[in-house]
Design a protein around this nucleic acid. Structure first.
Lengths: 103, 103
DNA sequence: TCAATATATATCAAATCCGACATACTCAAC
DNA sequence: GTTGAGTATGTCGGATTTGATATATATTGA
């Protein structure tokens, strides 16, 4: 497809075109994503503590290790959203709770 | 920590103890997680189409490839939640939309 | 029909994420 | 101030996910 047509499509959808702005937009997505993970990790820590589970106990519940739980709760970049969400599901975090968490 | 104390903790938190039930609980988490990913992938496809973007165009926006976008939308198990969520963020899926998506 | 465009499927090396382990730090309880 | 439970941090080999590529299969429009 030609660039002009692509540009029209994106502009119609509310997108700004241009290299610099494209980079800025990427940063925006990345920072939003990081904010989301941090919010989930903080909730995870609070929820685990409210259930009075140690990191080691909780690690057993998700078949992981204490160190990985610590990294999850610390917002370590090397922890996937998959693992965070599975962890929250394991702790029976409700849909309503998740909606409250979303930044 | 002793097992008896751990069990009390978990039971107080609404957990069922026991090997079989533990396995069932794992399956529950896994199936919920899969349902979540499928819901997000379906929304992603709908949203991309409503913006009249091809898979190739959208792949460029997220610096990925057409084939990976196809796998995302097909609910391929080999696609991470991270990639799905970053994709939705790129398409400016609102918090409200995400809340509607949650199964 | 028949090209051109769009999407689906398979494969692969590289990057990322994983559980596990070792070890260090924190902080109550004694 | 020692001990021990809980948490944090660093590392590593193996597993999973990645973008890229090739190719097959729709789907569209003339």
């Amino acid at each position: 497809m030609m660039d002009v047509q692509k540009q029209k499509k994106l502009e119609a959808a509310g997108w700004k075109i241009g290299n610099a702005e494209d980079l800025l937009e990427l940063d925006q997505v990345e920072s939003s994503f990081i904010a989301l993970k941090i919010a989930l990790s903080q909730h995870l820590k609070t929820r685990r503590q409210s259930l009075r589970l140690t990191q080691k106990e909780f690690a057993g519940m998700i078949h992981s290790s204490q160190s990985r739980v610590a990294k999850m709760e610390a917002g370590d970049p090397g922890v996937s959203l998959d693992l965070l969400v599975k962890s929250l599901l394991t702790l029976k975090t409700s849909k309503e709770d998740i909606e409250k968490i979303l930044p």
